[in-house]
Structure formats: structure tokens, C-alpha cells
Design a protein around this nucleic acid. Structure first.
Length: 390
DNA sequence: TCTGGGGTCCTAGGACCC
DNA sequence: TCTGGGGTCCTAGGACCC
């Protein structure tokens, strides 16, 4: 029998702000933007703010209406990462098998740790005390024999919760949930389920896998069948095989001017390139995303014969994709680029016979990135990106 | 109320090959 | 001449998660 813990930090970003600004404790704190920031959304709301109906992903303007007296902050992601690292290290004291899911949650495989830490409940309480003692933050923990059930359990009694689903109780547990708590079922699937007369996990449980696959498609059908039984084949922790690196930006005002668009594409290129350097990876596939003022979103991607070698190369590819896709005259609220299917720089790759120029540029940029790593305070940018900034 | 940014995975259709 | 089936790769769009 396996034992998994899923541990989730409660209202993480907002809690960090209350921790570092003790006078904010007990007051509504909203991370995501300042009142007046156009097009911002709520990243995290403290529990005090949630009582006003504020929640993640809500437009910030709405949050300001609901809770005008809240403390608004844009967020300090370095600080959040620092605390996250510290807490993940604490988890490592309890299990050799820690799978981090995101900045604020992780799975611990606790199978066979009873002799070291006692019963699950005792181990969970020790972890909660450790995190609280060393960082001042609260976590919620779910315990179950599958990662999937543990994940759902941790969310049931937040904040500072501990929910244990006993071995053998997985199915009744799943069947006791409202459909919205079934992880992996979002708004669209919820509607499709209801349109098909399925309103609860029990309704799904009563249907055959064949039927569910016929209605919802192979993948979603099988997922639903397994999910209400508490054990869909989750691939948490396995290395994704199509890793991608992306950067996107929603602009305060719609872009229409070509120079501004090119500058934006350049900036996104530099972001992605820098992160590819840090991860020591390359990519042959570049994707571009355009969101127009009416929120319709289009994308185009191209896989080249050779990998992207330097900023100029990337910028040229961006512009080509953009020209292919852009419907001239429309306002652009968001631009994004991504390098898909990245692979390790060490991997052999066919080289063009004529890329001496590119290789040289790549070497120079490598040196610049390396310098930026050593001196993050120095910002090196293409000349056009300095306009109106420094 | 007017919708972020960073990801992963799935689907359907087309190109191409045998 | 008017047409199969399987496999692989690529692309655009969409669902979902934190």
C-alpha cells in the first residue's frame, strides 16, 4: 500500500506579504496589481479578502470594487521563490521522493516512513509544525493511497487543514465530492457533463468507460472513468517530453504601430533566449501568439531545419511568423512567443555549412548572458529596447 | 467585472510515405 | 484513375492547472 502526502501552501503569495509586513496580518491582502493597473488580475487573495468574494484570476478592477480597503501589491516573486525553496527543502527531510508541482505545492511519497515518523497523522502534524516554525507559514495536507486523492484531499479543509483518506475509502471519498472538486474537470467539461445529464461523481461512476469515451472522447472519457474511482493515471513528476519555454505580455494599451510591435517582439525574444541559456537548451520550433483587442487569439508556429541560434535569428523568425498571421490594422492586446520541444544543448544537431555568422553571434550572446548571471544588476538590452526607459 | 503569465496535454486535419 | 490503410510528423486551437 502506498502513502502519498500532497502539501499545499495556504494563499501563498498573500501569506508571505503578511509575514513580511506583520501589520497586514488579519487584513485583506490582494497580490496581482495596484488599483488602477489596467488589465491586471488577482494572483492571490488572503483569506480575509476572500470573504469579500475576491479570488484568483478575477480582474483586479473587480477586486477593487468588492474590497476597496484591501492592501494591494504587485508581488515579489524572488521572495516567494526563496521561501518556496526553503519549504521544499523541509519536505526533503521527510521523504526522499518529493515531486514539486508548482511554486506552492508538492507530493511526498511517504510509503514506508512509519518507523521514522510514526503514523501519517503524526508525520503530517510534524511537517506542519516544522514549516510553521521555520517560516511562519501554514500548509494544508492531504493524505491518501493515490496522488490524485491526496491532491483533492489537501484542498478540502484549507487553511491549515489536514485531511486523511483511509486506504479502501478512496471511492466513497470521490463519490462524496461535488463535481467541481474533481481535479481536471474545468468549466467546459463541467458544462458538457451537465448537458449529458451527469451532475455528480456518482452519476459518472454509474457509466461504463466505453460510454464515457464515446461521449467525451478517448482521453477525457477514460480520465473521468478513472477519476471518480480515485486513481486516474497521473503522470506527476515524470519529465515532460515536450518541454517549452515561453514569454508573453498583455499590453496596457493595444498595439497597432509596427515599431512598437517589433520592439515588443524583440523584448519577448530576449526573455526566452535568456531562459534557454540558463537551462542550457536549444529549440527548432518557434511559436507566436497574438491576442486581438476583442480577445480572439490566434497562433502560428514553425519548425526550422536548424535550431534558433541567437537573438537576431529569433527576431527574424518572429517577424516572419507575425507577418504571416497578423490581420493588418487590428489592435493587439497580447503578444507571446514560445520555443517548443526544447532539447539539451549537448545533443548532436545537424549544422548548416553557412552559419559561421550565426555561430559567432551566438558565442557573443553567450558571453553576455554569462555576465548577466554574475551581475544581475546590470541590464543589457538591444538599443531599441532602451527607448523611453533608461 | 472584462478577462495575467507560465506551463502541459489533447484533438483534428493535412502532408507525406509505404 | 477517382482511390485503402497504417504510420509519422506537423500545425492550430482549446482545455486545464496554479
Amino acid at each position: 500500500m502506498k502513502v502519498f502526502f500532497h502539501i499545499d501552501l495556504d494563499a501563498f503569495f498573500a501569506s508571505v506579504e503578511q509575514l513580511d509586513n506583520p501589520e497586514w496580518k488579519g487584513r485583506p491582502v490582494i497580490v496581482g496589481g495596484l488599483p488602477g493597473d489596467r488589465r491586471a488580475v488577482v494572483s492571490t487573495a488572503s483569506y480575509e479578502a476572500r470573504t469579500y468574494g475576491v479570488h484568483s484570476a478575477m480582474p483586479l478592477s473587480r477586486a477593487v470594487q468588492l474590497c476597496p480597503n484591501a492592501i494591494f501589491v504587485r508581488g515579489r516573486y524572488r521572495r516567494y521563490q526563496e521561501l518556496s525553496d526553503q519549504i521544499m527543502a523541509i519536505f526533503g527531510n521527510y521523504s526522499p521522493d518529493v515531486t514539486q508541482l508548482s511554486i506552492d505545492e508538492a507530493f511526498l511519497d511517504m510509503t514506508g516512513t512509519e518507523r521514522l515518523f510514526g503514523r501519517s497523522e503524526d508525520a503530517a502534524r510534524r511537517i506542519k509544525e516544522d514549516v510553521k516554525g521555520q517560516t511562519g507559514l501554514n500548509v494544508s495536507i492531504g493524505v491518501a493511497s493515490t496522488m490524485y486523492v491526496a491532491k483533492i484531499a489537501s484542498g478540502l479543509h484549507k487553511p491549515d487543514g489536514l485531511t486523511i483518506v483511509k486506504y479502501g475509502e478512496e471511492v466513497p471519498f470521490m463519490l462524496s465530492l461535488p463535481l467541481e472538486k474533481v481535479w481536471g474537470v474545468g468549466g467546459k467539461t463541467l458544462k458538457r457533463l451537465r448537458d449529458s445529464g451527469l451532475f455528480s461523481p456518482q452519476d459518472i461512476y454509474g457509466k461504463s468507460e466505453i460510454l464515457l469515451r464515446t461521449i467525451f472522447g478517448e482521453s477525457t472519457g477514460s480520465f473521468l472513468y478513472q477519476a471518480v474511482r480515485g486513481n486516474p493515471g497521473m503522470t506527476f513528476g515524470e519529465q515532460a517530453k515536450n518541454h517549452s519555454i515561453s514569454s508573453e505580455c498583455t499590453y496596457d494599451f493595444d498595439l497597432t504601430d509596427r515599431y512598437a510591435i517589433d520592439t515588443a517582439l524583440m523584448e519577448l525574444s530576449m526573455n526566452v533566449l535568456y531562459r534557454m541559456h540558463r537551462e542550457q537548451v536549444k529549440s527548432r520550433t518557434l511559436a507566436l501568439k497574438i491576442r486581438y483587442e476583442d480577445f480572439t487569439t490566434v497562433s502560428i508556429q514553425e519548425t526550422g531545419e536548424y535550431s534558433i541560434s541567437n537573438a537576431d535569428d529569433m527576431f527574424e523568425r518572429c517577424k516572419r511568423l507575425f507577418d504571416k498571421k497578423y490581420e493588418s490594422g487590428r489592435g493587439i492586446r497580447l503578444l507571446g512567443i514560445a520555443c517548443e520541444k526544447v532539447f539539451s544543448r549537448e545533443m548532436e544537431e545537424q549544422k548548416s555549412l553557412f552559419d559561421f555568422g550565426n555561430e559567432k553571434k551566438a558565442k557573443i550572446e553567450e558571453a553576455i548572458y554569462a555576465m548577466q548571471d554574475r551581475h544581475p544588476e546590470i541590464k543589457i538590452r538591444k538599443a531599441r529596447m532602451l527607448k523611453g526607459k533608461e
